[in-house]
Design a protein around this nucleic acid. Structure first.
Lengths: 229, 229
DNA sequence: ATATCCATGTGAATAACATCACAATAACTT
DNA sequence: AAGTTATTGTGATGTTATTCACATGGATAT
């Protein structure tokens, strides 16, 4: 089976399947059907099968998927068989929280460098053992530490400036936590994590909940009608 | 013009247009065409016009959009004419960083309550003036402070438990920073911000960059070929 | 061995979304 | 006041993604 293009959304889902499978694996469950996994991940079961079909055949008909095996395969597909070295730029509240956060390490992402412009911060050694370096050393240190992905946690106004520096070194992946549109040359891959975009979507849906749901208001639990309708 | 369903992606884009428009407004620019805005936001100009058309007619033919006016309209559409009260649950590294982060306030999102289970943390007053309350007081305080949205920044294992408590009070919006699939009754709206999903997508694209781009390797800037191809 | 089960893998159908292309129309020009 | 210009708003079209529905084939039981 040959597919020309793989939907970006399929990759996102593979990532979510990974989480579910790890959870199931930790419960010592050996096999799961696409139907059950779909229920757990809140997607269509055909969707799961198709997502996997983009990359091969990993199931056993009449049985399902062997969890450990599928987990291994998906991780291989995603490129998680290697460790990814991250550099973080901007050691404010968010930057510090990110570097201390355990979820990254769990999946094979490893912070190996940290940068800031604030002279008070430069030189400080973080609890994880890495030192905060001046932005001027970005190129040198990123090459030295073989950084794969740059995580931008600067204020919005500084982000593009940082990106311009990054595009001078062979760090092709950028994870942008600042709420700003970044412009990069072809060949670089930028992903945004924008808190307020998500909040805006929540705000929109919450604002429109009232009207869109009125038709089936009676389906709502009683406390919804009581307080909000 | 009547539309039956508005794509979720359109709402996300509206949010991004807001940022661009605010930026333009701060530069004292008065009017912008869909073409220019599209270039800035890196989307198709027809896309912008269609996104807006879902909600009305906001432009002037032959001229473009008046920035202040459009900004006002989009904010109204998104529900940002009111302030949204947030409660945060889980005051670890991430929770503390989020509450201190300035991007929320800028857009009319206001943290009004904070919760944790750790007795050492409970009672502490945060720099923003709000106290950390025990999770047991969730219902009481959320009603008192009229919380609209709960922000979950607990470890993955605790998230569902927290959500179960939230669904007992009329807080219908949940922003989940934990890397776990949450299950909520109908009527609740959950959005995920999952760092590792984004990193996984980066890892995938970076792993596959080599092969997918080889055909047009000569288009790459010289330093890509030099170091990486 | 053969039959029966059951969940996969996938072609076809459907649905959702994005883009094109142009008629409609407001402002500006002469 | 009529013509020109510029950009919107939108029907038509094209593209991409999701879901359906079932033939396929491995595993198990008889």
């Amino acid at each position: 089976m040959k597919y020309s293009r793989i939907p970006a959304a399929a990759i996102t889902r593979l990532s979510r399947y990974t989480r579910a499978l790890e959870e199931l694996d930790s419960q010592n469950i050996k096999v799961i059907s696409s139907e059950k996994l779909a229920e757990y991940c809140d997607v269509n079961s055909a969707q799961i099968r198709k997502d996997l079909a983009y990359f091969g055949e990993f199931g056993v008909r009449g049985v399902g998927y062997f969890i450990k095996e599928l987990l291994f395969e998906i991780k291989r597909i995603l490129g998680l068989h290697k460790e990814w070295n991250l550099a973080i730029i901007g050691m404010g509240n968010l930057g510090c929280a990110l570097i201390a956060h355990s979820n990254f390490a769990r999946q094979g992402y490893r912070f190996v460098a940290a940068f800031d412009v604030d002279p008070d911060k430069i030189g400080r050694i973080l609890p994880t053992g890495i030192a905060i370096s001046p932005l001027g050393d970005l190129k040198k240190i990123c090459l030295e530490k073989e950084v794969d992905i740059a995580v931008i946690a600067t204020p919005a106004g500084k982000a593009q400036e940082v990106v311009d520096r990054i595009t001078e070194i062979p760090v092709r992946g950028i994870l942008n936590f600042s709420p700003s549109q970044l412009h990069v040359p072809e060949g670089f891959i930028v992903h945004h994590i924008d808190f307020t975009v998500k909040l805006d979507r929540l705000a929109y849906r919450l604002s429109h909940l009232r009207t869109t749901n009125r038709s089936r208001a009676s389906d709502n639990p009683p406390w919804i009608s009581k307080h909000l309708l």
